[in-house]
Design a protein around this nucleic acid. Structure first.
Lengths: 404, 404
DNA sequence: AGGTACTGTGGGAGCGCTCCCACAAGTGAT
DNA sequence: ATCACTTGTGGGAGCGCTCCCACAGTACCT
C-alpha cells in the first residue's frame, strides 16, 4: 500500500452569505448548486483528430481548452483582478460586478487552476495527517478513524485537501521528509508521536505549521491537542474509591508517552487526596499491549495479592490484566474491579464489559484542525509571530460498565 | 471521514542508471541517498523575527527562501534549461555538466516546486482511484486493499501521487465531478462501476485518461483490466465435473455486472462441452450478498432437489448457500459440493473451508496502473491518437479446499 | 572547402493565477 | 473649494517551472 493517502475534503460551493474564513477566505471555487453539467468545452484538437497548429507561443493552448481568469474577465467586462476577488470571496466588490462575474463563471464553466493558484500564492491548500505507524494499525484502531472523522468534518468547511501520510518505516519517513521539504502541504497534523521523534524539529526547521495530538512533554513547543489524561485517571480512581475499593493498583502505559505519565500522576493524586498512603508497589508499568497487561497484572498479584481494583492504562492492557486475574481465580468485579482507558471497541466486548475512560477523539481531531488552520492563517501575513503556542485539553468521560 | 484520501507513492530518488520512464521520464527529484539532512535554508524573515523588507517585486521572496532552478543554474554555472534537463533525467546532457548540476542541487538542497511544474507542464503527477462505495466497505473488503497494494507497488516506481476518492453518495459524486473538472489528476482508475454509471462518460468528455477494473460490457470504450471470469467459471465447473458431480447448479452474481454474466457463460459452456444438457432451472440469480445466496439456494433446492454441486458467483454468496444447504440437511461436500468465487478471507474461514476461484487482484491493480500511465504518456504529445483501447485479462486460479 | 547532421546548451516566452500599486470616483470634514 | 479618506477597479509584475527555438561546436560525409 502506498505511504500517503490523501483525502479530499474541500467543499463544492460556498453557502451564500457564509462568513469569510481567515485571510480573505478560501472562497467558493464555483457556485455549483446547479446540476454539475460539463459543457464539452472547446477542444484544442481538431475534429479530424490531428493536432491543431497550436501557435507555438501565443494565445490559449496548454491548458487543455479550459477557460482562464482572463477569459472570464473579458466575458464579464471587468478586469482580471476583479474576477480574482469574486472567486476568492473578497468583500470589496460591488454587488452588480459580483453578479456579472458569477454569471460569466457559470456560463464558461470556469474552474480555477489549482497549480497556478498554488504557484502565485505560495500555498497548497493541503494539509497532512502524519501517522508514524503502519497502515494496518491505522485501519485496525478506531482511534485513528475517529480522529479522521473529526478532521474530515472540520475540513469539509474549507477548501483544504487532506493527505494521510504513513511514516511507519524508515523509507517512509524519508519520503515524508522529502515531501515536507518540497512544501507540498501548508500544515501538518501529528498523531501518536514518541518523545524522541525528530519530526517535530524538522517541521520547526522548515517552518511548517504543525499541531501534535499528544504533547511530548509539559513543555511541548508545538501547538497541541490532548485529552485530560490527568483528570481522566483521577475520575477512574475516584470512581473505584466511591465503589468502596481501597487497594487500587495501576498498570501504566509506556512511560515515554507523556499522556501515560499524566495518568500515573492522576492516579497518585486521587489516592493521596482521598487520604491513602502512597504504595509504589501497587504501580507496575505496562506498554499498552495485551501481553504487557497480563505480565504486569501477574506481577501485581504476586506483590500485592490483597488488591481489590485495577486501573489499567488502556483497554488493551485491561484485557491482558483480565486474563491474568482469571488465571489467578479472581472474579471481576466481585474480587477485583477493573477500569480501562480509551473506551475502545474491546471495552464493550470484553467479558464482563469494561468500565473505561472515554477520550473525545473526534473532537480532538476537530480541535487540531482549528489550531492548524489558525496557525496557517497567522503565518500568512509574514507578520509579527511570537504568539504563544496553543495547547488545548479536552475533558474525558468515564463510561461505567459492569467490570467495576 | 473525508471523501478523498490521497496516497503518496512517489519515490525519493531515481536509481542511478534506471531506464527513463515515458515522456522523458519522471526524473529524480533530488538525489537523496545521503541522509536526509535539512539545512536551515536561508530564511526570509530576519533573525529578530520581523519581516524583511522583501522588495515588493524583484528577487527571491515568496517561495519561503527555497532555492529555485535559476539559483541552481547559477551555482552550477549553466543555464536554466540544462538544470531542468538534469532534474528530469533527460539523456541529452553531458556527464560533466550533469555532475556539476547534481552537486549544486545537493549543496543547495534544491527541491522542485511542484506547483510551478504543474502549471508549466500542465499536468499534476497525480492520479485518482475512484471507489463508488462508502469507505466502510472499502476498508472492510480485502478486494480493495489488495488492489491498493498493487496500485501502490506499481506507482512506487514513479513520482505519481495517488488519491483515493470515495464517491459513494450523491454529494461525493458531485465533489468528484468538481475535482475532475478542475483537472486535478492526470488520470483515473475506476473500480466496481455499474453499467449505468455516468462517470465514464464524464471522463471521456473531459478527456481524462481512465482505466476501468471490470469492463461494463463486451464493447467497453475505456481501457480495462479484468480477470478471466469466463475461464474462472469454467475451471470451477470442470473441477466439479472431474470430482464426479453431474448436477451442478449456479448462483449468479448481479447480472448487470458484466463479469457476472461472463461467469454464467463459462458455467454454461463448460457443461455443454462436457456433454451435459442445458438446464436453465439449475441457474438462479443472486446479487453477491449472503442473503441472496441463501434465497437462491433454497429456490434451487426446491426446483432441483437432486443437485449435487453448486458453483456460487462469489464467496459471500457461497456462504449464504451453505446456510441454506445446512438447513435442508445437506452435507458439504458429501451431498453437495460447493465452490465460490474471489477466494476472499471468508473462503478460508468457512466450515468447511471453501474451494474458490482466486482472482489476481494485486496484479490487476498493477496492470491498471500500467495501462493508465501508458495512456497518460500517449496523450502528452497531443499526437495522433486513435489507438485502440487496451483490454487486459488476467488468468484466475482455482484454490481447492474441502468444500468440493 | 562546403554541406548535412547530429549533440549540447542558453534563454525567451509563457503557463494561469495572486498581489499590490495606481487611480477614478464618491463622501465628508474643513 | 481643498484636502483626506474610502471604495471599487484595472492591470503590471511576478511566482518557478517547462517547452522549444536558436545556435555553437563537433563529426562525418561529399
Amino acid at each position: 500500500m502506498p505511504s500517503v493517502i490523501g483525502l479530499l475534503t474541500g467543499r463544492v460551493g460556498r453557502p451564500p452569505g457564509a462568513p469569510m474564513a481567515p485571510r480573505d477566505g478560501p472562497g467558493a471555487v464555483i457556485t455549483a448548486d446547479r446540476p454539475v453539467k460539463f459543457q464539452a468545452s472547446r477542444r484544442v484538437r481538431g475534429i479530424d483528430g490531428k493536432a491543431e497548429p497550436m501557435a507555438s507561443h501565443g494565445a490559449r493552448g496548454r491548458s487543455g481548452g479550459r477557460p482562464t481568469l482572463e477569459e472570464v474577465a473579458a466575458r464579464a467586462g471587468v478586469g482580471r483582478g476583479t474576477v480574482s476577488r469574486v472567486i476568492n470571496g473578497s468583500p470589496r466588490v460591488s454587488d452588480a460586478t459580483r453578479a456579472a462575474v458569477e454569471a460569466a463563471v457559470a456560463e464558461l464553466g470556469y474552474v480555477p487552476n489549482t497549480a497556478a493558484r498554488a504557484l502565485a500564492a505560495n500555498r497548497t491548500d493541503a494539509i497532512a495527517l502524519v501517522v508514524p505507524e503502519p497502515e494496518t494499525r491505522f485501519f485496525a484502531e478506531p482511534y485513528f478513524s475517529d480522529m479522521l472523522k473529526g478532521v474530515g468534518a472540520e475540513l469539509s468547511e474549507t477548501e483544504m485537501q487532506l493527505l494521510l501520510i504513513f511514516a511507519g518505516s524508515d523509507r517512509r519517513r524519508q519520503r515524508l521528509a522529502q515531501y515536507l521539504a518540497a512544501h507540498r502541504v501548508d500544515g501538518v497534523l501529528l498523531v501518536s508521536v514518541h518523545a524522541d521523534d525528530p519530526l517535530p524539529d524538522l517541521l520547526a526547521q522548515l517552518e511548517i505549521p504543525a499541531v501534535i495530538s499528544g504533547p511530548r512533554s509539559a513543555g511541548e513547543t508545538l501547538a497541541s491537542v490532548d485529552s485530560d489524561n490527568y483528570g481522566g485517571a483521577r475520575s477512574a480512581v475516584e470512581h473505584l474509591l466511591a465503589r468502596g475499593r481501597g487497594r487500587i493498583a495501576h498498570i501504566t502505559g509506556r512511560l515515554d508517552v507523556y499522556g501515560a505519565q499524566r495518568r500515573v500522576d492522576g492516579y497518585r493524586d486521587a489516592l493521596r487526596d482521598a487520604g491513602h498512603d502512597a504504595d509504589e508497589l501497587l504501580i507496575e508499568s505496562g506498554d499498552f499491549t495485551e501481553e504487557g497487561g497480563r505480565r504486569a497484572m501477574a506481577e501485581l498479584l504476586r506483590r500485592r495479592p490483597e488488591l481489590d481494583a485495577v486501573f489499567a492504562g488502556s483497554d488493551v492492557t485491561a484485557a491482558g490484566a483480565r486474563q491474568a486475574l482469571r488465571e489467578a481465580g479472581r472474579r471481576i468485579p466481585e474480587d477485583v474491579a477493573l477500569v480501562g482507558y480509551d473506551d475502545s471497541a474491546i471495552a464493550r466486548h470484553l467479558d464482563p464489559p469494561l468500565t473505561s475512560v472515554r477520550q473525545p477523539i473526534e473532537e480532538m481531531g476537530r480541535a487540531m484542525i482549528d489550531l492548524l488552520l489558525a496557525e496557517i492563517a497567522d503565518r500568512r501575513p509574514a507578520a509579527s509571530r511570537g504568539l504563544e503556542r496553543q495547547h488545548v485539553v479536552l475533558a474525558t468521560e468515564l463510561v461505567e460498565r459492569s467490570s467495576s
